[in-house]
Design a protein around this nucleic acid. Structure first.
Lengths: 344, 344
DNA sequence: TTGTATGCGTTATCAC
DNA sequence: GTGATAACGCATACAA
């Protein structure tokens, strides 16, 4: 309410309400030192004038921005291809909205860039906390943040990668076990996997888990590393299917590659699940939109985002946060996995 | 370089460099009023101390946040399903990084919420400009922003919907023409469309264009409105295929519904493109990852994001921005469209 | 070229 | 319960 051009300040509200500026501040922030009558009046006047505290001034006075930082790895193609990040943002945002917080988002082109952004936030104080995703092994960002404990940070990664930083972790090893078990029970003894980039921390964790589980069960296991894109997923699939004896099942590290892999198999005349079983990781909409539907390890990414936001808010409140577990994976068995073919 | 706990300010830098605070400010901001020697020294000392201007203080002094606001419609499911928004973010971010700007992102649950967020930004001054997407017909946000010209805003929408606000528009009507023309040349005379929500502005634009073009060509045309999700896309497809004579081609307003529609057709024993041609809008990775590949109207969403960011920066600089056109659509013909079947 | 002083809009401390 | 006033950290007009 107001065609205000010159911005309205706390003094305007104070004058209009016939009180002092501190009374306005107290009234607005629910602090004692002001009567109920004046509080009500102040709030009414403030709303009439469409006044809210200026963000910059408030941040400066409180040393608090009410923002958390999020860095998106800049590969525009992959970013829009892979639903994970947007799911995370949905969860983060939903939780943050309830606490009057916002996300400050920046893009990083490479690892160097990402380090620069973190340093920028440390120096400028433009965020109260930040989220670290897609950790690599021995990730320099971890060291950087440990050198600057002033900057609250939460890592989403396996706890073995985060060097003691507050961490939201998922039990990927357990998920690997569920996947292999599912295929083993269907009679598969020659399994392949199309993994994410080798340098990523969670690729590494899964690599280790798969190797161990398959060797325990005496299953043949082969793994190709790709980059999460459909092209790479299709390519890896073709390579896996070109060797003899070819695997009877392929597990993909994300849905995008699984979808592309399924198409690639189709094009080669390899029928799913008759000749080849397919499983995927994450279980986004693609798994159910595909034909045949793709069996997947389902994870609640939005909920993980909510948890991550809640943990960062705890950090900002000065509470201790150690290692917290995401909701567990669930195996969703669908059409793309079936009994292993008689003989390859 | 510094295990600094108490934050370092411009005065610390000034003292360490043996100059005054204003010299530091001038030096850092590349302004005249300081010798090259002192400038160099100041910069060196600042870098040694890891100092950058505090963001809140800078914003307060300059009345400039170096942030643009982005509101994500909060349907976590749809948000992570639909690659459009992330593509836009990629483009926005890429351009903003080059100008030392960031995105402030919030989630809105409904239209009321989104209005509240805009009002919040107007009152708090937490962003220098904001982006309006997914406009509806007679969208109240447009009026709100016209009442508050202080808040720079850019709308991504058909110019007919933005009431004179600065606008980045795309020629969806032309795209509709290309789509129909492509199918017409393949012999299709009974076309259906699975559109986005009826209340969305660009659904409306496309509705009108399709109706006009098909009636001009004397083609049978039917349209069902869905909500962009795979479930709705599959459902609409089944309904369209259940009437006789059934359409020989379906155009989908986004890739997600097209992918789900293709699967639904498969499950019904309707072969693509033998019995049914399928086309999609946007042309994300799903179109090439699907089998058969999906013919699509390709648009460069990332580039649109870059353009949007550049336009907002112009607005912030006080320049006028009218209606600007996105890069044009291109038809990518693929496997999912073929000659119309002889008789339905 | 350099240093000093004031404003930016809040919050919070302190007298009243 | 209320009203001046000092931070908060920077930019900048102004004086030296």
């Amino acid at each position: 309410m107001a065609g205000n051009k010159g911005k309205v300040t706390i003094f305007d509200v104070a004058k209009a309400a016939g009180v002092s500026s501190s009374a306005v501040s107290y009234a607005l922030n629910g602090k004692p030192g002001v009567s109920e009558a004046t509080r009500a009046k102040v709030l009414r006047v403030a709303s009439e004038l469409g006044w809210k505290p200026n963000g910059a001034a408030q941040s400066l006075a409180e040393s608090k921005t009410r923002r958390i930082g999020l860095i998106l790895g800049y590969d525009p193609k992959l970013l829009s291809v892979e639903p994970y990040m947007m799911g995370l943002i949905s969860g983060l945002g939903a939780e943050l909205e309830e606490h009057d917080y916002s996300m400050l988002v920046r893009l990083s082109i490479g690892e160097e860039d990402e380090r620069a952004i973190i340093e920028d936030w440390i120096a400028t104080g433009n965020v109260d906390a930040l989220l670290l995703t897609n950790l690599e092994i021995g990730d320099p960002r971890v060291d950087l943040l440990k050198e600057h404990p002033t900057m609250k940070a939460l890592a989403i990664a396996d706890a073995s990668l985060t060097g003691g930083l507050p961490t939201l972790t998922s039990d990927d090893a357990a998920a690997c076990g569920m996947a292999v078990q599912h295929l083993y029970e269907l009679g598969h003894r020659n399994i392949a996997r199309v993994a994410g980039p080798e340098e990523l921390g969670h690729s590494y964790i899964r690599d280790a888990a798969f190797s161990e589980i398959t060797s325990e069960l005496g299953i043949k296991y082969r793994c190709l590393h790709a980059d999460y894109t459909p092209e790479a997923g299709a390519d890896a699939t073709r390579r896996l299917l070109s060797v003899s004896p070819r695997p009877t099942a392929i597990i993909y590290d994300n849905d995008v590659m699984a979808l592309a892999g399924e198409s690639a198999a189709n094009q080669l005349g390899v029928s799913v699940p008759g000749d080849l079983s397919i499983m995927s990781w994450d279980d986004s909409f693609m798994c159910t939109a595909a034909h045949p539907n793709i069996t997947a390890l389902n994870r609640d990414i939005v909920e993980a985002g909510r948890m991550a936001a809640a943990l960062m808010l705890k950090l900002i409140d000065g509470e201790e946060v150690g290692v917290v577990e995401e909701p567990p994976y669930h195996l969703r068995a669908r059409e793309s996995t079936g009994p292993a073919p008689a003989e390859a």
